[in-house]
Design a protein around this nucleic acid. Structure first.
Length: 486
RNA sequence: GGCCCGUUCGUCUAGCGGUUCAGGACACCGCCCUCUCAAGGCGGAGAUCACGGGUUCGAAUCCCGUACGGGCUACCA
């Protein structure tokens, strides 16, 4: 009995894709995949002032980066196009005409000034503050004459006053009811003939046979208005699911003040798409209350509207960072190398070609750093010593090389390593002889070598680092550090 | 002002009338592991379930109210 699942994500290209929009997109996408339905990507670009094609492109790119694919929309023609609202004017005009002829819409000649005055008056009197329906009382024939004479007018919805309350069963919030007496005869079409959001959306959702509308909480109050239009136009009313908002760390609206808000920024900061997807999916939805690492496939397999939480969520950048680290750790060497390639390239450490030539070497480097990084942008700094000669920091020199026994340890290490096979195991065995032959504590000896090799007191594991560097370069660095130490 | 929605550890959440003096995750603290840093293991601290009334043998869970927060109330979306 259930009809096909068809959902839509309808961003306005007035900016880039924000994390809030991304989460809405993820939920729509996961729901479509879960039910073998279709995800429609519709571009709500009716705001000509603020909409740009650059923004549209950026939104599409961010969606793709996150791994969200759509079945219909830009680049994926379907039977319900076009998928840009600016190209659908004809549809809106036809729908408006239908409403007009059935008496569900009427022209209103009130000027903005008059309306503002009435609104102020009504509000200060308390109670209903919507349009007072003056023009609804105009004789239809006379109204028509005024319209055809070219008098400026908008079209408004004639709210069916004899109807009961508008009720709907929101998939997230449950039964919701709005008294019809609180419904405004809101504007469907502006003076210039263009449709308003509440009208265009309904025409689109109706024409596109959308079965479930999963969208932000800010539209909850618009829903009864839209239901009235669905009914007037004879479309099947979709199931609604309203998502609560995502707030910044201070509980206020998420903005630049809280750091990154757009998806592309997260990409630039070195986050993995699967980590952002996972984090956002869990921000308002849970699999079982226990599982936190949830793969794309698991999400598509188990996503359900009834496990979406009703309360707003605060965006926790720390948890996202932790999650990104968890994904980094879980990557296999090959995937990790692919992920870091652009970052190493950007830092000028290596070229793509170098990597493909020495693929094995890079893959053996991967596990050393993948479990130590939370973001991709940290990687270059961690492996820089393998490409560039290190500069020993002043702090490292004082804390380590100036220590008693450091020089002896370096000398002994140099000797032992010169004779060693250069595998991590052999290197370790060689270095472990240093404390014995010199009496220098292992910690001090190892740190001295670490500083010599990496320039810093913190680095990837020492033995493996030496192996990756190679014997010749390792010995040269120890000699250089020896000189520096005195 | 009117209409509507929300409220469980600092944060994300589990919980859908009893098996919960509330479970998991991030962050935090301690211990272990250890060549540094991480990672990992173990343990700890952290929520009178916003508040007040009901209903019930029994409520975080149902109902009502209050407070606080939010949305809509535009010829924005």
């Amino acid at each position: 009995m259930s009809t096909a699942v068809r959902v839509r994500f309808a961003p306005s290209p007035t900016g880039t894709l924000h994390v809030g929009g991304a989460r809405t997109a993820i939920y729509n996408w996961a729901f479509a995949r879960r039910h073998g339905g279709a995800l429609v990507l519709r571009i709500d670009d009716t705001d000509a002032e603020r909409s740009t094609s650059e923004n549209t492109d950026q939104i599409l790119r961010s969606l793709l980066w996150l791994g969200i694919d759509w079945d219909e929309g830009p680049g994926a023609d379907g039977a319900f196009g076009p998928y840009f609202q600016t190209q659908r004017s004809e549809l809106y005009a036809v729908a408006l005409e239908r409403m007009n002829s059935s008496g569900a819409a009427y022209p209103c000649f009130c000027t903005p000034d008059q309306l503002a005055l009435k609104r102020d008056l009504a509000r200060s009197a308390g109670g209903f503050s919507g349009y007072d329906r003056t023009c609804r009382g105009i004789d239809p024939e006379q109204a028509l004459r005024r319209v055809s004479s070219g008098e400026a007018h908008v079209w408004r919805l004639a709210v069916p006053l004899d109807r009961g309350p508008v009720t709907f069963d929101d998939a997230v919030r449950g039964a919701t009811e709005f008294p019809i007496t609180a419904m405004d005869d809101f504007v469907l079409a502006r003076t210039d003939g263009s449709p308003t959001y509440n009208f265009a959306t309904v025409v689109d959702d109706g024409e596109m046979e959308i079965s479930h509308v999963i969208r932000g909480d800010d539209h909850l109050s618009n829903t009864p208005r839209q239901i009235l239009v669905f009914e007037a136009l004879g479309y099947a009313v979709p199931v609604f699911a309203h998502l609560s908002m995502i707030w910044g760390s201070d509980g206020k609206k998420l903005s630049k003040r809280h750091g990154a808000t757009s998806v592309e920024t997260y990409e630039e900061m070195g986050y993995l798409p699967e980590a952002l997807l996972n984090y956002l999916a869990l921000l308002g939805w849970s699999l079982d209350g226990e599982t936190t690492i949830i793969s794309r496939d698991t999400l598509c397999e188990h996503f359900s509207l009834d496990r979406i939480s009703k309360n707003p969520a605060i965006f926790d950048a720390e948890k996202l960072e932790w999650m990104n680290g968890a994904y980094l750790r879980d990557m296999n060497a090959s995937a990790f190398v692919d992920a870091i390639t652009p970052w190493l390239e950007r830092e000028g450490l290596v070229t793509r070609e170098d990597i493909s030539v020495r693929r094995d070497w890079f893959e053996s480097l991967a596990p050393l750093v993948s479990e130590r990084a939370k973001r991709l942008d940290e990687v270059a700094q961690k492996v820089r010593f393998l490409f560039d000669e290190p500069t020993i920091t002043e702090a490292a020199r004082e804390k380590v090389l100036a220590k008693e026994g450091a020089i002896e340890a370096l000398d002994a290490a140099s000797e032992a390593l010169a004779a060693a096979d250069f595998t991590a195991e052999a290197i370790e065995a060689a270095l472990r002889t240093v404390p014995e032959t010199t009496g220098v504590k292992a910690k001090i000896a190892f740190q001295a070598v670490r500083v010599a090799i990496t320039g810093d007191t913190v680095s990837p594991p020492l033995f493996e680092s030496l192996e990756l560097l190679g014997k010749e370069r390792s010995l040269a660095r120890i000699a250089a550090a020896r000189t520096l130490a005195g």
